[in-house]
């Protein structure tokens, strides 16, 4: 009896998941069709539903970015592309579109080095660095009492040590770069950073739709941001989309 109930539950769950995926795929296809016929706003709706119904994927995020860009939502387009870029940093279409959008945003994506950090994020360094670090540490442990100064063991240990140091350096630089690179995108028109985290505060400087900023501090619904020129100001959190590192 219990076995039969279990099998039945599994079938129901499987069907449910299949239905959800089918709906998401259907929304994805409808989004492409609407985009192709120039109905960008409708296309944005379909891609957003595909994102909500199914799990995020590079294709959905990328296409959503395109649809938003053609719909005039530069900031939201950049946010979608950056999320897609997180998953596949080296993909040419994503990079090309991001460059296109950033060229249209004054004070765009910040310095060039931040682009390199995005292409080689810490997770790209982490596994090789961890393997190298543990291997080197094991070799060091094994070689503690080994008198093999000129031998092969010592030579390989030195090479592995050099590689480990380089990988750890790369990981550290990438991690530090990620922490200081812009991690949020301004969305919407007429966004202005304020001197303090209250509505009554004076406007410090305007921010264009799509400007990429770094979130410095979060205080309730307000966030303190630093733009690419180093200006510091406060924004309501709803006016930016934060991109996880």
């Amino acid at each position: 009896m219990n076995t039969a109930v279990s099998i039945l539950l599994r079938i129901v769950c499987g069907l449910f998941l299949f239905a959800i995926r089918a709906a998401a795929q259907s929304d994805f296809d409808r989004g492409i069709a609407a985009y192709s016929s120039g109905r960008f706003q409708e296309s944005v709706g379909h891609f957003e539903r595909a994102l909500t119904n199914g799990r995020p994927s590079v294709g959905v995020l990328y296409n959503l970015g395109n649809a938003r860009f053609r719909n005039g939502e530069v900031g939201r387009a950049i946010a979608a592309w950056r999320l897609a870029e997180r998953a596949e940093p080296g993909r040419g279409e994503i990079r090309g579109n991001l460059e296109l959008a950033r060229r249209q945003v004054a004070g765009g994506a910040g310095p060039e080095w931040t682009q390199w950090v995005r292409r080689l994020p810490p997770r790209r360094w982490a596994v090789p660095a961890a393997v190298a670090a543990w291997s080197w540490a094991i070799l060091l442990f094994v070689g503690l009492d080994r008198d093999d100064r000129a031998g092969h063991f010592r030579r390989w240990m030195n090479r592995l040590g050099a590689a480990t140091i380089l990988l750890l350096l790369g990981y550290s630089v990438s991690l530090a770069g990620t922490r200081s690179a812009p991690d949020a995108v301004v969305v919407g028109q007429g966004v202005a950073a304020r001197f303090g985290p209250v509505d009554e505060s004076s406007v410090a400087f305007p921010l264009p739709d799509g400007a990429e900023v770094r979130v410095d501090e979060v205080r309730g619904p307000w966030i303190r941001i630093v733009d690419s020129f180093g200006h510091v100001g406060w924004l309501p959190g709803s006016q930016v989309i934060q991109i996880p590192p």
Binding site: A50, R55, P56, V58, G59, N66, R70, E93, G96
Partner: peptide
Amino acid sequence: GGLQPLMPAAGPAISV
């Protein structure tokens, strides 16, 4: 307008 074309497939799921 210089925009790259859409991707025809959604691709595998990712974590955001």
